[in-house]
Design a protein around this nucleic acid. Structure first.
Length: 154
DNA sequence: CCCTGATTCGC
DNA sequence: GCGAATCAGG
């Protein structure tokens, strides 16, 4: 069987059209398939699914079609909500993944362990949620009112 | 200011 | 043909 398949195989296109016709945003489709939203839109354009496919000339000015798609400026908010909505608030906080400042990366939770300046000062190093600097467990702690001292009071 | 949608350009 | 960059609109 061929191993080198083009990025857009029949299955991809089917999923693409299915979710597109389902009323999902290109963002969701892209995230679901695993490609950039530009790639999804680009493919749709080539398939003439973006527009009626009737016009033989370009005319960008058809941005208003989704009913209530006010964008998602609060992407992190949605993720945090999803974390709180979980029935089992498990905290995947492992000390085995702790790393130093130099070992920090986008795939490492930046939750500070111990106190800054201490010899054993390190970071969580867990797998953070996409778009969040901390792992789900620490993200919740960081956002939980009361968990940390709420100095902000009026 | 941020995000989504669509077109256009480069590889 | 695919993908990123760019443009346009809400």
């Amino acid at each position: 069987m061929p191993t080198t398949q083009p990025t857009w195989t029949t299955e991809r296109v089917e999923l693409l059209k299915s979710r597109f016709e389902a009323g999902l945003s290109c963002r969701e489709i892209a995230a679901y398939i695993g490609v950039s939203r530009n790639a999804v839109i680009g493919k749709l354009s080539r398939l003439n699914l973006t527009t009626n496919g009737d016009q033989g000339r370009p005319a960008r000015k058809r941005v208003g079609k989704p009913p209530g798609a006010k964008a998602t400026p609060r992407l992190q908010y949605e993720m945090l909500v999803a974390l709180y909505e979980e029935p089992r608030p498990e905290a995947p906080i492992d000390d085995e993944h702790r790393c130093s400042l130099l070992e920090l990366s986008e795939e490492r939770c930046r939750w500070p362990i111990s106190t800054p300046g201490a010899e054993d000062f390190c970071f969580c190093g867990n797998m953070p949620a996409e778009g969040l600097p901390y792992c789900p467990g620490h993200s919740r702690l960081a956002y939980r009112p009361g968990s940390r001292q709420r100095v902000a009071r009026g």
